[in-house]
Design a protein around this nucleic acid. Structure first.
Lengths: 271, 271
DNA sequence: CAGTGGTCTAGACCACGCT
DNA sequence: GCGTGGTCTAGACCACTGT
């Protein structure tokens, strides 16, 4: 009964959560180590099981710990940060300029971001022609009322058979109708998106990315194997052409990335 | 007893959470509207109160709903998206060039981002001289072993008395010792960070931002009034000088922003 | 098999918001 | 005062992991 809770200082489960959080931050419970079992916590703090589970659930929702039925509860470990650079499009473009669009080297910004080879790269894909959803119409500067047809491509990206991100990507259908780009069997496309568009004679001059974050939907949690208490980064992207990127956008995408151990890097040059 | 749960299709609380989620997504429970009370859900699904609370707690952790003691549980509403542009530094720089660093107009990128006037802007501040923490030393390209002194400035930014973001900002102390920049009473500084550095004869040529996301700490939740199920966006920033931004960084900052209804916009030019 | 966390019941009292 | 969600008890059985 070392840490009996004080009935006058707020909810017992909060006090217990605070104490466990303190032990994790101080290193008393190191990353990867096992927390006391529920029965042990019940004894230590002299409370009912419900209270212990409320405290533990709070730390789970913060992403500090995770539980495995039959095994125990553990402090989450952090791997090296996966860096996804805004610059990656510049690298793709440089490759295209060096090798030409028709036969670029087998790699994309995704393989570079995740430090994997072409062999370790895999994707699930689903192509459909649909009327542009409102959000996509806005990204593509289309009139949402017109119901313009777009090629919708849904991808789930895997590195070494582990899902890393999912996306919905859109091209105006007029741009890609009856071209190799509209054929899903050509994915993954060596050289990526920019090389693909270059074969159509389209050269991107500007990419805009808008980053948001929220908790994942149950579908996203399942598909991407996201642990409790881990949000997703949402990147809304569009690709522009023309001297100042002032021509209509030719691609829009929504990308969902588990936020754990991941950073999106951007550079702003002030001349 | 309309929606009796099926004891063979997984946990009852999951089935109830799924059903409530469906009603929210379909619009049957519109944004801002009140969900059935716990007692009503107990009757509808014929389960105990614990099960209902587990289901509701799941949707809270997803950020779909929130509860108020004594009032009820409500579907979260979304306001217009607050856009924070990577470009904001370019605007600050343009202002400095037009009006000169000593007496810039009273506004910063923060007031512009939040569409507020100088009067509606307020900040809490706390300045200290400390040895550069490891993470900061890395951002500033300092040797972490040397314990270089830095001026640490902690800010909480308010728009109309509502906390919007908090940050830790760092200057190498040698750069700002005995200058107006080290005097907290000069904050908020009209024209912001870039104008402040310009008065020292330092002109930023490049800003690097690295975006991550996680659930807030209890301290962050309190300070920024963050609801359950809402993550934070973390921006690690550094400011560079020199023709290609190739001189040592002169400022580093960690910025914490509630993710609800907020987007960080970046532009990548491919020449 | 014992030990772990996951699900669930049937209660109780408290804190808060409103009328 | 009454209805709301918040906290808490003392149990029970189940599902999974390891010996």
């Amino acid at each position: 009964m070392a840490h009996v809770v004080d009935p006058t200082s707020g909810p017992a489960y909060q006090q217990i959560a605070d104490e466990l959080r303190r032990r994790i931050r101080s290193g008393a419970f190191a990353p990867g180590s096992k927390l006391p079992t529920e029965v042990e916590l019940i004894r230590e703090f002299d409370v009912s099981r419900v209270v212990v589970r409320l405290a533990v659930g709070e730390l789970r929702a913060e992403g500090l710990i995770y539980s495995r039925q039959g095994k125990g509860t553990f402090v989450r470990e952090h791997g090296p940060v996966r860096r996804i650079a805004g610059d990656r499009y510049r690298h793709d473009l440089a490759q295209i300029k060096r090798y030409g669009a028709p036969d670029p080297p087998k790699g994309t910004s995704f393989t570079r971001d995740h430090g994997i080879t072409w062999d370790q790269y895999r994707l699930d894909k689903d192509f459909q022609v649909v009327s542009a959803p409102r959000e996509v119409a806005e990204l593509l500067d289309l009139d949402p009322e017109l119901g313009t047809k777009v090629l919708q491509r849904r991808f789930v990206f895997y590195a070494n058979d582990r899902a890393q991100q999912m996306s919905w990507s859109y091209y105006p259908f007029d741009l890609v109708r009856d071209t190799p780009v509209a054929d899903p069997t050509n994915e993954p496309w060596p050289g990526g998106n920019l090389a693909q568009l270059a074969t159509l004679g389209i050269f991107i001059t500007r990419v805009e990315e808008s980053v948001r974050s929220r908790m994942p939907t149950p579908d996203e949690r399942r598909t991407l194997n996201i642990a409790e208490g881990v949000p997703v980064l949402l990147v809304a992207r569009r690709m522009l052409t023309g001297p100042e990127g002032d021509r209509p956008p030719v691609e829009a995408a929504n990308i969902v990335i588990p936020a754990a151990d991941t950073a999106l890097d951007y550079t702003i040059d002030l001349e």
